[in-house]
Nucleic acid binder design. Sequence first.
DNA 1: TTAATATATGAACAGTTATTCATATTTTCA
DNA 2: TGAAAATATGAATAACTGTTCATATATTAA
Lengths: 110, 110
Amino acid sequence: MNNCSYIKNTKNEVSMDVLFELSEFFKFFGDTTRIRIIHLLLSGEVSVNDIAEKLNLEQSVVSHQLRILRTANLVKPRRDGRKMFYSLDDEHIGLIFNTGLTHILHKKGK
Amino acid sequence: MNNCSYIKNTKNEVSMDVLFELSEFFKFFGDTTRIRIIHLLLSGEVSVNDIAEKLNLEQSVVSHQLRILRTANLVKPRRDGRKMFYSLDDEHIGLIFNTGLTHILHKKGK
DNA sequence: TTAATATATGAACAGTTATTCATATTTTCA
DNA sequence: TGAAAATATGAATAACTGTTCATATATTAA
C-alpha cells in the first residue's frame, strides 16, 4: 500500500498518557520563536549567538527557548571552546516540520 | 530517493509569515483536549455529544474546542437533524498526528 | 406553538508561557 | 590571575489560553 512507515492504521488504540505526551510534544512546534530556531537548525548546527543574530532575537530569548528544546530532546548541544553549537536531535523533528509545512503550503496554494 | 512527497529538501527558504502560520498550525495539536478529539475523529465522523461522552468531557468544552478546530479548517461539520457530526477536514491532519505519534512511541521504546 | 434535545456562545477566572532585564557561570586568552 | 566573550538562569511582568457556568440558538416532534 505504501512504504512510509509513519503512515499508520486509522484504528489506533492510543492510551491517554501517550495522547498527553503527544500534545506536549506538538507544543514545542507551536511557538514562532521555536519554529524559527528549528527551521534554522534544519540546515545544520548553529551557535547560540549566530541563532540570535540570524533570527534577530535577543541572546536571552534564544537561550531560554533552547533550554526548552534541549530538555525535550528536540535539540542537542555541543561545546566548542566557549561556544555552544546546537543541532536537531533526531530526524523526526525535521520530518514533522516538513509535514506541517507541506500542509500549510498546500492550503495556501488554493 | 524517496516517493514521499512531504519529505522536502533541507534547504528550505521559508518566509517569516509561513513560519508564523506553521507555528499557529502546530498549536492546534498542542492541547490534550484537541488531540483527543482529533484522535477520536481519525476513525470517522462523530457527533458533539458522542465526542463529549466518549472522551468524558463537558459538552461546552467540546463545542469550544471544535470551534477552534473548525475555524482553523482542521475539522468540518455536517448537520443531520439537530445533531452535528464532525470529521477531519483533510488527510494531512491524520498524517501529522501519526508522524508525531510514531516519534513518541519511538522515544518510549528506548 | 410549546417542550425537549443538541449545540453554540459569552464572560469571567485561573493557569500557563514567552519575553525582558539583570546577573551568574563558564571558558579562553593576555 | 583578571578581563573579555559566550551562554545560561532567575524573577517579574504581560499576554494568552482553556475551562467553567450560564445562557442563547436551532431543530424536531407532539
